[in-house]
Amino acid sequence: MKLFPKVLGILVVLAAVGGFIAMDIPLYDKIFYIFAAICVGSGAFVVFSRNIAYSAFSLLFAFFGVAGIYVLLGADFVGVSQLLIYVGGILVLFLFGMMLTSNIDKLREERPTMGRLLPGVIVASAICALLISVAWGVPAWRKAAVQVPTKGTNTTSLIGNLLMGDYALLFVASSIAILVALVGAAMIARSDRLSPEDAAERM
C-alpha cells in the first residue's frame, strides 16, 4: 500500500493550495508566499537530498524562486539577470562539474554521520534564529516604506546609466575579473597541464 501515502500527500497539498487561494489576502502577498515557499522548499531539498543530481535540479527552482523575490522587490533587471546567469550559466556549470567528477551511478551520497550533522544543525539554526530575530527586532525595518525611483519602476535604464556613470570603474574592474576568472579557470582545468614532476622529467 505504497499508494495511499502518496494520494494522501497529494490531497493535503491540494487542500493547502486551495486554502491558500481562497485566503483573503492581497495578491501581492499570495505571490510572495508562493515564491517564498518555492525558495525555502527547494532550498531545503537542495541541502537535504542526498542525490546530487536532484540537488542540482532543485537548486534551479531555488534560483527561480529567488528571481521571483527580486521581481517582487521591484528589481526586475536583477531578477532577469538572476535567471540568465544563475539558471542559464552557473547551474549548467554545476551540472557539468557534477557529471565530470562523479560516476553517474554513484550520485547518491552516503548518509551523513551524526558528528557531521550535529554541528550543521546547531550552526544553521543558530544563525537562522539570529538573523530572523534581528529582522523582526528592528522597529525601523518593520515600518519601512517602499521607495520607488522617481524615474519610474523600470530599473533597467537606471542601472544602465549607473553602470556607465557612477559605477563605470567597478564595471570595468568586474569585467577584468571575469576575464581573469575565465582564463584562470581554463588554465586550471586544462587537461594537458603537466604536473611538476612530469615537467621536470621532460626538461
Binding site: 557531521r116 554541528p119 550543521g120 550552526v123 543558530a126 544563525i127 539570529l130
Partner: peptide, 16 residues
Amino acid sequence: IQTYVVYVILGVVVLF
C-alpha cells in the same frame, strides 16, 4: 573547510 565554517558562524553569533 567545514569545521572552519562552523567556527566562523559560531564566532559571528557569539560576537553578535
